[in-house]
Design a binder for these strands. Structure first.
Lengths: 350, 350
DNA sequence: CTGTTAGCGCTTTCAA
DNA sequence: TTGAAAGCGCTAACAG
């Protein structure tokens, strides 16, 4: 079955390829109404499907953008991707999905691929350090938007989130509810987001002149090749909670703040397992506000992270740059918000 | 900055474009070692990046496959996608992500797009009924693999999962632990998977000659435009659990089986909220074995669904077909397995 | 082993 | 308002 091309249509209506192209590619080049109709009708009737490779070759563009994330099955990234896809679709663009598995070689390959496919823009999140392909990509005219991670490359635009402040308001909430012994439970501080949250924790304690107790600081050791999926976070929460539970009663925290919701869940699980009630005996605050956070008992107090909104933002920004509107670009810092549910409670006065 | 093409390289090493192409596209056409080296070196040195549009136009192929799912932010589909992406990557293919939002118009558009981009294969899951573009796509030589949903189109190959049996073994587990009053809680039976699970429930009751009580059958009504995300499932579980809790005590179930884990979570939440202990007062079984299922208290007994494995399978099958190996294709039915955790218990003899 | 040549399907000058 | 012609970067038949 021969595929029908622009030339077949031209022949069938006695027009030139040029005219057909002008009509079918929605060019604003003037073509008479009569001709226009005739061509459109023929195209439809012959079931014409344009071959984008032809156009791409000629115009050196593609209606595709890329997105590189460590793991699409991590709910955090899948939300981001979902936001990106939504606005790309609205603009008639498509998304090439690049699942890097936190493997720098795969990341490099993906950049190469994007280049080869004439993909002019890419959104990245949690890229490995020291990926020289990034520089090469932007140097060749590719446009890059980074989510949640500062890149020391001036060609890369950024969509940020104020993690420090997120940590701050979480602790503020606990402090204002009378808590003084507040533990911090976290995965290794090996990326900017986690470091930011930790800073917020410290800043709040300092500002409110609350005591800082080393024993209440529970940060996991970094392990070679450790992959931070949901199970890791949950188990990490459990493990570190055990540490807290092994303290003598008067040294134990009255509240625990975790670096993300799954870790908070692990902490909650372990405390409940040991007969502690949440929030009566201990308050718990998470981070991210994943869907899950409303489904636990009790529902989790946490800090909102606008995941899909960040994806949408990043994608809008990308199109702004692609359209050459770089002057107008505002780098953005999205703000956190406390979501108060039932895992926290004020300390009753004695 | 001029982009370097095969012709530039040819010039620089005094060879023909043809030879350069043969070397750089890893053709098995014989080229002398010396020439080979010279060309490769030049390519590297000039920082050559092939323009795939050229090749694509010439060869009428693209190294891209598509995947159409209702929602990438649904953990179920993101696992599937993740499996697909993994094997696509191993084969040097890329994945065009199509998030259909259960909107038939979007689905149609995506098929059109795939066709325009010369994407020769697509994996679909939960496609809307009556999408005529599917037929058109396969009729034009596109290859389709369907996950979890029978298509009455003989050109579509399928990767299936035995939902009926999954439902069966869940109930069997409960029956063999002495339960007789077993409730079934489900979202609307508007797709094959849910109907299958329900059949398994019925079959098991019948085979074990357990009584069937209409009052224990809790199936949500279908609502126009209802979108089955995690929150819906959870809330649905809660709502229907309330119905069970409002029964007089002797009429209540001793065990509840839910059509998926999130629904089971909703049921568990509601029972616990009303002071019932799980599993002491009521046993609960979910379906899918999402990551979450180990994180609840108590951890959830559930039925394993190999999500990413199905993605990998589907993708392998796709390549088999793309390579013309259609004779060898075995349509597959993956089997469920019970995952016994702590939300179920045998009924103590009185 | 190497080169010449003719397109793949499309857009876009330029001329009419 | 239309058409002729050139060419985007690549591959593949064919000839040498």
């Amino acid at each position: 079955m021969k595929t029908v091309t622009i030339r077949d249509i031209a022949k069938s209506v006695n027009a030139s390829q040029a005219t057909v192209s002008r009509v079918l590619s929605d060019s604003d080049y003037p073509v008479s109404e009569a001709m226009r109709d005739k061509i459109k009708k023929a195209a439809k009737q012959m079931n014409y499907t344009p071959n984008l490779a032809g156009r791409q070759l000629k115009t050196n563009t593609s209606m595709t953008i890329g997105i590189i994330v460590p793991s699409i099955s991590n709910p955090f990234y899948s939300e981001v991707v979902s936001g990106v896809e939504e606005v790309a679709r609205q603009r008639g663009y498509h998304v090439l999905l690049c699942n890097s598995c936190q493997d720098i070689e795969l990341e490099k390959n993906y950049f190469r691929t994007l280049l080869e496919n004439q993909v002019k823009g890419v959104i990245i999140s949690s890229l490995s350090k020291g990926n020289e392909m990034l520089a090469q990509y932007s140097q060749r005219g590719g446009c890059v938007i980074s989510i949640d991670q500062a890149q020391n490359n001036s060609d890369v635009f950024q969509v940020n989130y104020d993690y420090r402040r997120g940590g701050y308001i979480a602790i503020q909430h606990l402090l204002e509810n009378g808590h003084r012994r507040i533990a911090y439970v976290s995965a290794p501080l090996d990326r900017p987001s986690r470091i930011g949250i930790y800073k917020g924790y410290q800043d709040a304690l300092r500002e409110y002149e609350a005591p800082f107790d080393e024993a209440l600081l529970c940060i996991a050791e970094a392990l070679e090749g450790q992959y931070y999926d949901g199970k890791y976070e949950f188990n990490n929460g459990r493990t570190l909670a055990k540490r807290l539970l092994s303290l003598p009663p008067e040294k134990r925290p009255t509240a625990v703040f975790a670096c993300n919701d799954l870790t908070a869940l692990g902490v909650m699980y372990e405390f409940q397992e040991h007969g502690h009630r949440v929030p009566d005996d201990v308050s718990i605050v998470g981070f991210d506000n994943v869907d899950l956070a409303v489904m636990t008992s009790p529902p989790l107090t946490t800090v909102e992270h606008p995941k899909s909104e960040m994806g949408r933002f990043a994608c809008h920004m990308l199109f702004q740059v692609l359209e050459g509107d770089t002057g107008q670009i505002q780098e953005i810092m999205l703000q956190p918000k406390l979501v108060h549910r039932q895992s926290t409670q004020s300390i009753p006065l004695r």
